[in-house]
Amino acid sequence: MFLEKINLLNFKNYEMLDLDFSSSVNCIVGDNGSGKTNLLDAIHYLSMSKGAFGGGNTQHVLHKEDFFMVKGVFQAKDLDYEVTCGYKKGQAKVFKVNQKQYDKISDHIGRFPVVLIAPNDTDTITEGSELRRKFFDSIISQLDKNYLINLIQYTHHLKQRNSLLKQFAERNFVDRSLIDTYNHKLIALGKAVCDKRQEFITEFAPIFREHYQELTENKEITELVYQSQFLEEHYADDFRQALPDDLRLQRTTRGIHKDDYDFLIDDHLLRKFGSQGQQKSYVIALKLAHFDIIKNYTFMKPILLLDDIFDKLDDKRMDKLMRKVAAHAFGQIFITDARPERTQAVFEHIDVEKRIFTIDKGEVVDVMEDLN
Score class of each variant (00 low, 15 high):
Asn218Trp: 06
Glu217Ile: 02
Glu217Ala: 11
Leu224His: 08
Leu270Trp: 11
Asp292Phe: 01
Leu321Met: 13
Asn296Ser: 11
Tyr226Trp: 07
Ile309Glu: 00
Gln213Arg: 11
Glu232Ala: 08
Glu233Asp: 08
Leu224Ser: 07
Glu220Ser: 14
Phe299Val: 03
Lys301Ile: 05
Lys320Arg: 14
Phe239Ile: 00
Asp267Lys: 12
Ile309Ala: 11
His290Ile: 01
Asp237Gly: 02
Asn296Tyr: 01
Arg317His: 13
Asn296Leu: 08
Glu232Pro: 00
Glu220Leu: 10
Phe291Gln: 10
Asn296Gln: 12
Lys272Gly: 00
Gln213Ser: 03
Thr216Gly: 07
Phe273Tyr: 12
Lys312Ala: 08
Phe273Val: 05
Phe273Trp: 15
Thr252Trp: 00
Lys295Asp: 13
Met318Tyr: 07
Asp266Ser: 14
Ile293Ser: 02
Tyr282Met: 14
Gln278Tyr: 03
His211Ser: 09
Leu224Pro: 07
Tyr282Cys: 05
Glu214Cys: 00
Val283Cys: 02
Asp246Ile: 01
Tyr297Val: 11
Leu313Asp: 06
Arg317Asn: 07
Thr222Ser: 13
Val283Gln: 10
Thr252Pro: 07
Asp246Phe: 13
Asp307Gln: 02
Ala236Gly: 11
Ala289Thr: 03
His257Cys: 09
Leu306Cys: 04
Glu223Trp: 00
Lys316Pro: 01
Asp314Lys: 14
Ala285Phe: 04
Gln241Arg: 12
Leu305His: 10
Glu214His: 05
Asp237His: 12
Val225Asn: 10
Tyr282Asn: 06
Ala285Val: 13
Asp307Ser: 01
Thr253His: 05
Ile284Asp: 09
Asp237Leu: 14
Leu243Cys: 13
Gly255Ile: 00
Leu224Glu: 05
Leu269Met: 06
Gln241Leu: 15
Thr298Cys: 00
Ile303Ala: 11
Ala242Thr: 08
Asp308Cys: 04
Asp315Glu: 06
Gln250Ala: 13
Gln227Met: 14
Ile293Asp: 04
Lys280Phe: 06
Leu305Trp: 10
Glu223His: 04
Glu217His: 03
Val225Cys: 12
Gln278Pro: 06
Asp246Val: 12
Asp259Ser: 04
Tyr282Lys: 06
Asp315Val: 11
Phe310Arg: 08
Lys219Asn: 10
Val225His: 11
Met318Trp: 00
Leu321Cys: 09
Glu233Ile: 08
Phe299Thr: 13
Arg248Gly: 05
Arg240Ile: 15
Ile294Lys: 01
Leu288Asp: 02
Arg248Cys: 00
Leu306Met: 09
Phe263Asp: 13
Thr252Met: 03
Asp245Gly: 10
Lys301Tyr: 07
Leu321Val: 14
Glu223Tyr: 02
Phe273Ile: 04
Tyr261His: 08
Asp292Ile: 01
His290Met: 04
Ile309Lys: 04
Glu233Phe: 03
Ile221Cys: 06
Ile256Gln: 12
Thr252Cys: 06
Ile294Leu: 12
Ile221Glu: 02
Asp314Pro: 07
Asp259Ala: 04
Thr298Leu: 11
Asp307Val: 08
Glu223Met: 08
Lys272Ser: 01
Ser281Leu: 09
Pro302Asp: 12
Leu288Ala: 04
Asp292Met: 05
Asp314Glu: 09
Phe291Asp: 02
Thr252Lys: 00
